[in-house]
Design a protein around this nucleic acid. Structure first.
Length: 376
RNA sequence: GGGGAGGUACCAGAGCGGUCAAAUGGGGCAGACUGUAAAUCUGUUGGCGCAGCCUUCGGAGGUUCGAAUCCUCCUCUCCCCA
């Protein structure tokens, strides 16, 4: 994997670049749709590629390991072959599940003992094992195994957690360096900065991660319930420390506003379940603002879903029709909302990139933040 | 014509003398959702001058300190027999 930083905004810390992988290029800033179980929920690969124009999608180590399991993925020749996505894939390590499934796991120095949310069976994820799993899944970008701390989080716990995440990182790197992709292309490991909302911990972590000199770096443990201002503060602090010549990935963020603000702070890559999950729950993000398509006000509105939208569903279907689909619990509604939202997210970061290159990013961003956060 | 069952909030349906403005489900309305245990979850659903009051359980009258609940008549619906 290579990163070519092509443009720097003069009025903010925003940048544009190209991440090159063996499965193709990723133009940054980029939004990466989340495909936890090897599928971006409710969206076909063809729509993902041709309509939404996603450059890269996510998969999840924990979920794929439990189901369908490594055997079948290996037999298929990796996740790309298994799900038919021949562009780049990034796998989250399961560190987020250490946080979200906290009721069914135990953290030890060796690793994390999990209980499967599916059948209750016990499994152990060590940093080494997670690297092996991610090798088998075959993602172009593999995430280090970390602990995503909750919010709020006591300083002492955050510090302890950070230290273990760092020790796990060393073990991840060691395993990463002594193994290779079973399918013949290259895979890159991204370490993850933690430290909750504590400046000194974030600085310490960012410096540690920077010193590892990996192909790209991630910021985790944010957007877990802390105020947005706190998230921006931590993001900026960390971005200023992480090397400029490596892509920076802010994990799990966020709303369109969050993304625009964090691009301005120097983030290159984002992922979030919001466009898909909230879409399935009736929330549409548009350049003019946020729509809850289930609301009665759209009942007789036969105008297009999004007049300015780039996806074919935006002009092909009306708001009233989409509302009808949601009211009737029709599966197509989930598909349309997911396609629309993903296309909007990808369009939004693409526009950001365009304005960074053209040099008027900041004014465009400020105008856009107001628009996209409006409630329609 | 004879016999029986029943009419409860938007719908279905519990309640059968006071703790009932009325369970529960559906529907309606609104909100939440940030490296996905989510086609999920939460709230609300008679009115108002809202810690209280007013009007509601087919209609009218009655019994009672007190009625959606008991009695009388009326009315409508459904089922069985002829």
């Amino acid at each position: 994997m290579k990163f070519n930083l092509t443009n720097k905004d003069l009025q903010s810390k925003a940048r544009a670049g190209i991440v090159s992988t063996d499965h193709g290029d990723i133009l940054t800033p980029i939004f990466m749709p989340v495909g936890t179980a090897g599928t971006v929920k409710a969206v076909h690969q063809r729509e993902l590629k041709d309509d939404i124009k996603a450059h890269i999608i996510l998969g999840n180590t924990y979920h794929l390991y439990l189901r369908p399991g490594l055997k079948i993925i290996e037999k298929a020749g990796g996740l790309h072959k298994f799900n038919g996505w021949d562009k780049p894939i990034l796998t989250d390590s399961g560190g987020y599940q250490v946080y979200s499934l906290s009721g069914t796991r135990k953290i030890k120095e060796e690793g994390v003992v999990f209980q499967s949310h599916i059948d209750g069976s016990r499994h152990t994820f060590s940093p080494e094992y997670v690297m092996d799993i991610e090798r088998t899944i075959g993602a172009d970008i593999m995430m280090a195994f970390d602990e995503c701390t909750p919010y709020p989080c006591e300083y002492d716990y955050a510090k302890k957690s950070l230290d273990i995440t760092h020790r796990w990182l060393d073990r991840c790197i060691e395993r990463y360096k002594t193994t290779e992709c079973p399918y013949g292309y290259s895979q890159t490991l991204f370490p993850i900065v933690q430290g909750s909302v504590y400046k000194d911990l974030r600085i310490k972590s960012a410096e540690y991660i920077a010193s590892k000199n990996m192909g790209g770096n991630a910021i985790g443990g944010l957007s877990v319930g802390e105020p947005a201002e706190m998230m921006y503060e931590m993001t900026e602090l960390v971005c200023d420390i992480l090397p400029a010549d490596k892509p920076r990935y802010l994990m799990g963020v966020g709303t369109p506003t969050n993304i625009l603000e964090c691009i301005a702070l120097g983030i290159d890559m984002f992922d979030c379940v919001m466009p898909t999950r909230n879409g399935r729950n009736g929330m549409l993000f548009t350049s003019q603002g946020i729509i809850n398509i289930k609301n009665e006000k759209w009942k007789e509105d036969l105008s297009p879903i999004d007049e300015n939208g780039t996806s074919y569903v935006d002009s092909f279907y009306s708001k009233a029709y989409l509302r009808h689909l949601f009211s009737s619990n029709e599966i197509l509604g989930l598909q349309i909302a997911s396609i629309h939202n993903l296309a909007f997210y990808v369009w939004l970061v693409g526009e950001a990139r365009k304005h960074i290159i053209e040099g008027d990013f900041l004014s465009w961003k400020n105008k856009m933040v107001k628009q996209v956060s409006t409630r329609l």
